[in-house]
Design a protein around this nucleic acid. Sequence first.
DNA 1: CCAATTTCAGAGTAACTGATATCG
DNA 2: CCGATATCAGTTACTCTGAAATTG
Lengths: 152, 152
Amino acid sequence: VPDSPRSAELSLIYMVGRVNQGIRRELRTRLSEWGLSVQEYTTMSILDARPELSNAQLARRALVTPQSMIEILSKLEDRELVARVVDPAHGRILRARLTPSGKSILRAADPTVKALQSHLLEGVSAADQERVREALRQAMERLSGIGDGPGA
Amino acid sequence: VPDSPRSAELSLIYMVGRVNQGIRRELRTRLSEWGLSVQEYTTMSILDARPELSNAQLARRALVTPQSMIEILSKLEDRELVARVVDPAHGRILRARLTPSGKSILRAADPTVKALQSHLLEGVSAADQERVREALRQAMERLSGIGDGPGA
DNA sequence: CCAATTTCAGAGTAACTGATATCG
DNA sequence: CCGATATCAGTTACTCTGAAATTG
């Protein structure tokens, strides 16, 4: 008895969940080569694009609680992949950035992740990829507004 | 210092991860009203659309190991939301289906989930939604082929 | 004996809630 | 005192690896 999916009926929420599950599974294996977990890689990628974010800002951006984010960040700090320095204007806030070795590990891991992405979207036109991106971007925005205050 | 995203540069893998994280967070809250976890809801949805799947088939479809799936399924069985019966043609295989009370809980929870999905995609044209769906469907297919045998 | 399925046991990851402390 | 941040502690949710039994 085969097992063919009925694509037209699958909800987008469901599909996002399954694709994410598959991606995590695959990335876990690939990233273990550098001793990185999936959220460690994700967090480092955010910091690469936007340095000097605080723990609270990172948490909002990743849609997790600050308590969850601090755990990731602490481990990265212990391994000296991320450094955190006191904000000059606010003694309570710690701003994070990648260390040189953090950057170099990220650079080393990047091609594998890019390769996975290319493989998954192979054959999807650039225009359609942009549409997917735009839909996801909007969903991210809406989700940011639900549990937390407005992103203002 | 505001916190605006640079959408054009965000990788799809990253966006899928964030959207999924936000969805799970939101669903966890909404589904707790019926005592359902996110994967319980997901598994029940699959069974609603495709009854008589075995644990192994469900696991492949959800991109998790059979060991993970059996844990979800066992709990649902304990709560009598799912019933499992021996396959007439193969005494080892147990085929699962929703019980009447399982169906009725699923029906009760459905509108909330549908509402979330509508909210997230509000304003995205039907044609674009179909493109997103198609891209995700392809990604699911590719991911099924990586860790496991072909879906044959 | 082999391949697929089911399932137990143990472990690890990832995320959460609650509470406390600090800073402006 | 309030609001935002940081962070400790305990807990829950979810998934995995390993191993064993069953069935055709």
